[in-house]
């Protein structure tokens, strides 16, 4: 068993990140519905996102909330389905989180600053 303190902290971080994600998903869906009104093209999207600090900030928060939320859930799945416990599952989940941060922020950079 990992420590009670660690599990309690993982629980509230997953709760907090879930609240952030719920809000982000709603805003994301609203933006999508708004954005595709007159058809969808790469030029139109990039025209809206390039140089937009608010767009970059919003999706950076989205990515960071995912990077926090997903590995905690995956660690539980790996524990229950494959019996991974202790440092092994912590390292695997950590790498997954880092991968989400890297790929997610790279995508945000790509549509905002590149």
């Amino acid at each position: 068993m990992t420590s009670a303190v660690t599990q309690a902290r993982l629980w509230y971080w997953q709760r907090i990140s879930a609240m952030v994600l719920a809000l982000c998903v709603l805003i994301h869906l609203a933006i999508m519905i708004y954005a595709v009104r007159g058809g969808l093209s790469a030029a139109e999207i990039l025209g809206r996102t390039r140089g937009s600090l608010s767009f970059g900030a919003f999706y950076s928060v989205f990515v960071l909330a995912c990077a926090l939320h997903v590995p905690i859930g995956l660690a539980t799945v790996a524990d229950e389905w494959m019996g991974w416990r202790g440092p092994k599952v912590a390292v695997a989940a950590g790498f997954f989180g880092i991968a989400i941060v890297f790929m997610g922020l790279r995508a945000v950079y790509g549509v905002v600053a590149a």
């Binding site: 068993m1 990992t2 420590s3 009670a4 599990q7 309690a8 993982l10 629980w11 539980t76 524990d79």
Partner: peptide, 12 residues
């Protein structure tokens, strides 16, 4: 008691 029931074999 909270220490005993918290953790991945407990309430979590």
């Amino acid at each position: 008691r909270l220490r005993a029931v918290a953790g991945d074999a407990g309430c979590h």
